[in-house]
Design a protein around this nucleic acid. Sequence first.
DNA 1: CAGGCGGCTGTTAGCGCTAGCATTAGCAGA
DNA 2: TCTGCTAATGCTAGCGCTAACAGCCGCCTG
Lengths: 338, 338
Amino acid sequence: MTRPIPDPRHTLTLRDVSEASGVSEMTVSRVLRNRGDVSAPTRARVLEAARALGYVPNKIAGALASQRVNLVGVVIPSLSNMVFPEVMTGISSTLDGTGLQPVVGVTNYLPDREESVIYEMLSWRPSGMIIAGLEHTDAARAMLGRAGIPIVEIMDIDGTPINHAVGISHRRAGRQMAEAIIAAGYRRIAFLGTQMPNDFRAKKRLEGFEEALAKAGLSLVDREYYSGGSALLKGREMTAAVLTRTRDIDFLYYSNDMIGAGGLLYCLAQGLDVPGRIGLAGFNGVELLDGLPAKLATMDACRLEIGQTAARIIAEAPGQAQVVELFPTLQAGDTIRP
Amino acid sequence: MTRPIPDPRHTLTLRDVSEASGVSEMTVSRVLRNRGDVSAPTRARVLEAARALGYVPNKIAGALASQRVNLVGVVIPSLSNMVFPEVMTGISSTLDGTGLQPVVGVTNYLPDREESVIYEMLSWRPSGMIIAGLEHTDAARAMLGRAGIPIVEIMDIDGTPINHAVGISHRRAGRQMAEAIIAAGYRRIAFLGTQMPNDFRAKKRLEGFEEALAKAGLSLVDREYYSGGSALLKGREMTAAVLTRTRDIDFLYYSNDMIGAGGLLYCLAQGLDVPGRIGLAGFNGVELLDGLPAKLATMDACRLEIGQTAARIIAEAPGQAQVVELFPTLQAGDTIRP
DNA sequence: CAGGCGGCTGTTAGCGCTAGCATTAGCAGA
DNA sequence: TCTGCTAATGCTAGCGCTAACAGCCGCCTG
């Protein structure tokens, strides 16, 4: 039983499989894609030949010929902050079994970078695009609008989508948190967040937050921004700075759970009465942080569901543009007094 | 809240740009790829036409014609554990400016899933592949070996690579940690880790660890595995379980920093004397965790450098297969007594 | 003034695959 | 016998782009 040794110099094509199995290229193509009628014996012969040769189809040629690409572009700002991996999980699980495959691009919160990632992705003619946020460069919006494929903007719905949007209202989320804090009787409230000119969602949360404060006749008594470094550590440092600088602060509102956790650890280490003397809250519902000495008040951002819904919209390719608003739930945890 | 999706009009091709600018398709192609000699006025005219039309090149056709694809497949087990995002950062930053682009595939530590992700990626004929780990299905190894592109297996070097490998010796890392622990005088040592039959690197670390213990006439006094859930919380729970079950444990070795941090928080909350009465160590050097009340002993896994080196190997496409061993440094932190 | 050369642009021939017929064999019904 | 059908397979013509080469022009060189 001898078989020809595959020549590593020559990359295999349908023709090789067709010659090895004695049928036309077209029939091989049909077998490998499970399309059309092929008799059982022929199918078996072709599959065996393909397996023996180690043939891997060339999707580039296939896509060009069929004008069909089973890829969905996913454009997100970062992979390292716990929120987007969960969105990805939702996307992947929903796409599984539809024949579509996600392809990720990361922008690092840079609009120009986003534009070029989008351009690059569109040049592969994907079946759809999922993009975080509603804010893009004009050129990016134009490209997406013209692409002729479903575009789903995720995370945020406070704005005008290109066609579909799935997310929460961050403005409302900020407002809700402020209302809960005020209702709990806190009055001297400080904000601690990331210095990210392009994190529009964090910005909108803060806007909503301040709006609700204003309605109650309050305003932030202090604010502090950071960038870079370990979030946990930064949360600790910023908290120390704010508490030292401004007296009688009774609430710390953080733009994300990670720095909130750092702040919480600091307050506990200082022996401060949480949530009696001082309350804390973050944003995002990071499961990772369960296991801290106390549970930080937070609001989950429906990340998994956002991913699933966005993927479903692409997979079902609806003609009508739609906006899906999800509603985060406030989790008071142990750091807002009841 | 419904708007029609803009009609997928005629998708633009080179021909459209060529007609709009009054030159041949070839010249347009040259301009858009910055290749060959094109006079300045022609170039300007073409660029303007392309911009005005909003032309996005079709890389599928381009790749088929040129037999060149500027993609590098990256296959990793997970995005949600802090280690691979950092590898990705290294890869992206090194690939930036080479014209190559990473494309990520996630396997969830499932060998069959890995095989299909690899198959799928190879079918796009990438310029190279970067794959976590040295353990793959036979079929996956065969495909990769035949693909005729550089393959870099990362993270681990304890095994036989397909052609290139960049990583650390996890067996040695486990051994080193054990030696440090023994040298510090700890004797009743327990292991706490993930229940992951396919996390070969964690397995190798444990093997190396036990090997070094054995050489000192010691063996683990207890071990505990978990799967799923919040790592921090699991670390806390497992630690409680182990310390309750087995008496006089004086060291806890964790398979990763996250559960180690949970254990550390638990020990501190219990008022245990760390590192006097009990020591702890993890693995990975997660910057995220700086900011905990005490710094967990750990070993960084050179993730950034691994990513950079792997990307450099692909970009420079060397003929010779090479294995690059990196050497992690032990960070004693505050949880091993000096 | 032939010959050549460099700068610029166009022409030709695919890349490997698949849509959309066309073709064949085999067989049933009239 | 012939037609009409179905199931299985093959053929042809691209998909949109680029490699490779073939012009063309003006300008120099000897």
